[in-house]
């Protein structure tokens, strides 16, 4: 088979999953809209808290962040989390539990890719319907405060690249979590646990820069920082030159690492699937 044909076959096979993803996302749009509103709610709670913090601190800045920085950080990190978050943990877990994962196993496809392409459908909708509007909103806010447009296309492109790395890393990290369904039945609890660990260590609750210096260093080396902190810092222009290269290099490193971990765990888990499959 020629290379071209192989590529066509690949797209045909996995493109079907992407289409299904888009269709499901449209069918469950209410679900998605509500979760988005929930995120925005959370942002506003945090907004008021930070506002009170800045007012109480007496000075215009808090740990080298201005209030404008904080608002930009808050909305960007939450929209990044919203974008990179994946349902794969839950989906895989449920399929393992009820045995329907065999439907994927009997097909001549890679299980992880089938989930990934399914989600691409969903994510492309998220990108166009909420991600870009929030970015535009943030830029309008910055314009209102600063009085001039401070949009840097180069930074933006790096941000987009970094966010794609974040998403792929999130996907493989979640896949590993999803495989935990082989050992645990309480997927709901596991999901909450995963959510709070990620939210905390990725800096979505408190910017990592606010921790003591040594803690900041350790946290920013961990894979969680690569999930949202890195792209947001790039967008805000807090990472430049060497720092930027290092941070993005780290993203690639963790992506590769979790890609291989997920393969190993999967191989090992496959042997156990006979026990649970229905």
């Amino acid at each position: 088979m020629s290379k071209r044909l192989q590529k066509n076959k690949f797209l045909k096979t996995y493109g079907a999953f992407t289409r299904a993803g888009v269709m499901d996302a449209v069918a469950y749009k209410m679900n998605f809209i509500c979760f988005f509103i929930g995120e925005i709610f959370y942002c506003f709670v945090m907004y008021f808290i930070w506002k009170a913090v800045f007012e109480s601190s007496g000075s215009g800045t808090f740990m080298s962040f201005s209030m404008t920085d904080m608002v930009v950080y808050l909305f960007l990190s939450n929209i990044t989390m919203f974008f990179t978050d994946t349902d794969s943990t839950y989906a895989i877990g449920e399929e393992i539990k009820d045995g329907s994962i065999v439907m994927r196993l009997i097909k001549p496809i890679q299980v992880d890719l089938s989930y990934l392409f399914y989600e691409l459908g969903n994510k492309s909708l998220v990108m166009s319907t909420v991600f870009f509007p929030v970015i535009i909103g943030v830029e309008i806010y910055k314009y209102n405060v600063a009085g001039h447009i401070a949009f840097d296309i180069g930074k933006f492109l790096l941000f987009m690249l970094s966010i794609i790395l974040s998403y792929l890393l999130a996907f493989y990290l979640n896949l590993v979590f999803g495989y935990m369904a082989f050992f645990l039945m309480n997927l709901w609890g596991l999901n909450i646990l995963k959510g709070s660990i990620i939210k905390f260590f990725s800096g979505a609750i408190i910017p990592l820069a606010f921790f003591p210096e040594i803690v900041t260093k350790i946290f920013s080396l961990m894979p969680f920082a690569s999930l949202s902190y890195t792209p947001v810092m790039i967008y805000m222009g807090k990472y430049t030159g060497k720092d930027l290269l290092f941070a993005m290099g780290l993203q690639v490193f963790w992506l590769v690492a979790f890609f291989f971990i997920s393969k190993v765990v999967w191989k090992w888990a496959q042997k156990r699937i006979l026990v649970q499959g229905g």
Binding site: M63, L184, I192, L193
Partner: peptide, 29 residues
Amino acid sequence: IDFLTGALSFLINQLTNILFISIIFDNIP
């Protein structure tokens, strides 16, 4: 084990929020 995962996850969820409050108060009175 499932019970422990569940209880632990809600516990950690709350602890991270408490840590957030504590870090804020390290910097403002």
